[in-house]
Nucleic acid binder design. Structure first.
Lengths: 338, 338
DNA sequence: AAAACTTACTTAATCGATTTCGATACTTGG
DNA sequence: CCAAGTATCGAAATCGATTAAGTAAGTTTT
């Protein structure tokens, strides 16, 4: 391994001078700076991020956290898109990305400890159970963090615009003539609450009455539970004409349940998803859904986190809401009369 | 930040003793070892991975490389499954995972330099253009690496069993009565060659003649190009009865092309995918495909890499082939007579 | 021409942990 | 009772890089 010591010997200057030359310090003559850079290149010198991090207390490494429990794993497209865009933006800004998890090998660590252990400059909390004490500890610690789809105290967060998403979807089906709209929702999280409130509010504003049995609990990303909820809705004497699913993937559970009852989409039942993952657009019929701006969310998360890391003094926490986009699809039928 | 110095002061012993006590060295008395561990816990001590890495020359950090160019990005389910299982196994073994990329911020680095810069103990090359000189440099360097779906010289690699996969798929459609089988293949990579040769070999063994125009080039994970290939196949005077697609996602391109010609699956055309991603199993009709053992591949990759890192002396490179599993689906029709 | 700056380096401490080589005290064997 | 062995601990070097402080020239000011 080539170190600054090797360069200093080859150039006949001190290690301090080499370091300063390579970092563009002002008190190095043009001549020596050039000589140092050239021999550095000739010898194939690479800075050692570890040594630098130890000395300057900054690792240029940010953690990313996907908690394994909530099923919001990396392989869901929404999250893998976020991961990809966080990674791209962080790298653009000179930061590497390391996964933060509970328990590394034999050591039992919580998230906070893991982040400290790796001396991460900051952490993006991408998917997590926000009631988990370990998550809370990290998110309220002195380590800069950005959370996605949740705000701790009033710390920095990137929020998908669930209110607007629901509004647009409700308006869309309303204009197609639907009045009997059922809503299958995911676990009781802040996201769910926002969507549910927005759903109710928008319906109310449009003068639609939603009977309580039209609101069904299920779980995110779990086709089975949405299938069950669908079955209950179909058992009602007064069936809805349109069903909102918690997310695109969950709709697939509803799909097979509707299949079982020989109910065709959208002729006999209209459906709406959420997320706008690529899968939704290759289904036939194409799913009506709301695409969350995952790519931009990841980018903003990385950008804000690095801003906070690099200028902590003039930093104010902020919450950014990223709008999505309605994808019309073909799964909502035009009702001739209501 | 609590360091071993703090502990040493609190305990009235030297830093050396603290370090040894925490690492279970033999020349520390039971008493002091216990006292040190207790005050370490009391003070909330966390080892500093950076400092340790600098001293011992091991970072307990392994790199993972997904090259962005080939479209084999993280958000493809095959790769995100691999990522997830590499991550899980590495963490189980006490290693963290960092993404390795070209160009970090302003610095221009190739993959090898990036891995050195972060002093990765090893790198999993999960998805890459194996003709890229930067990839070759890394994969043939002194850094332990494991490649997926490609073998450099005879270094360690994890291979999906493409030969067996093709064999099984061909046999499957053969037994359904198909004799006119077309094969749309991806870019000319070693994987493609294996599949192509295996396809040809199996057909020959079964006495099936495949006319050259039944073999169409396209690109992996690119529905558009497979759509075009499909169009060409449909234009033939002697159409095939069954089409093999390069992967599940590409099949979707074929799907819309078949739609356009009002050809229904499997009644008028049978199709077969490859990969067995979850999407393939929620399509209707369910896709006949071959699931690659992504989860096991990732796990083995991490396991072998760590083995090589931890006992480089008694290490022999090896290639592991991971079998997959045929998913029958519903997209291959039973031909009454052939 | 003496005082006051500049410029261009070097010295040495430091980050947090590990590890080699002693050093000391105590135990055991002969 | 002395030599040898054992158990326990500490001093100091080290990993590679950064940086405050100091130094020795040369340059400018008055």
């Amino acid at each position: 391994m080539v170190t600054i010591t090797d360069i200093s010997k080859a150039c006949g200057v001190s290690r301090a001078t080499v370091s300063k030359a390579l970092n563009g310090a002002p008190d190095v003559s043009q001549d020596t700076a050039k000589r140092v850079r050239e021999t550095a290149k000739k010898l194939g010198y690479l800075p050692n991020a570890t040594a630098r991090a130890l000395k300057v207390g900054r690792s240029y490494n940010i953690g990313i956290l996907f908690s394994d429990t909530t099923g919001g794993g990396i392989s869901h497209e929404y999250f893998s898109q976020i991961l990809e865009s966080v990674k791209a933006e962080a790298e653009r800004l000179g930061y590497d990305i390391t996964f933060i998890s509970k328990d590394l090998g034999a050591m039992s660590m919580d998230y906070y400890e893991h982040a400290k252990y790796r001396s991460c400059d900051g952490v993006v909390i991408a998917s997590a159970d926000f009631t988990d004490p370990a998550i809370i500890r990290l998110a309220t610690s002195e380590i800069p963090t950005v959370t996605l789809d949740y705000t701790f105290d009033s710390r920095t967060s990137i929020l998908s615009d669930n209110v607007k998403g629901m509004e647009e979807l409700v308006h869309f089906v309303y204009e197609k003539g639907h009045r009997k709209i059922a809503f299958i929702h995911g676990e009781n999280t802040s996201v769910t609450q926002k969507r549910l409130v927005s759903f109710r509010k928008t319906c109310a504003a449009l003068g639609i009455e939603i009977p309580p049995e039209y609101i069904c609990p299920a779980r995110y990303h779990d086709p089975k539970s949405s299938g069950l909820a669908t079955r209950e809705l179909l058992a009602l004497s007064d069936r809805p004409t349109c069903i909102f699913y918690p997310d695109d993937l969950s709709f697939l559970g509803g799909l097979s349940e509707l299949d079982r009852h020989d109910i065709s989409i959208p002729e006999e039942m209209s459906v709406v998803g959420y997320d706008g993952i690529p899968l939704s657009q290759v289904l036939r019929p194409k799913l009506t859904t709301y695409r969350q701006g995952a790519e931009r969310m990841g980018r903003e998360a990385a950008r804000l986190l690095v801003e906070e890391i690099e200028s902590p003094d003039l930093w104010l926490p902020q919450q950014i809401t990223v709008e999505g986009e309605l994808l019309p699809g073909k799964t909502v039928r035009d009702l001739p009369d209501n």
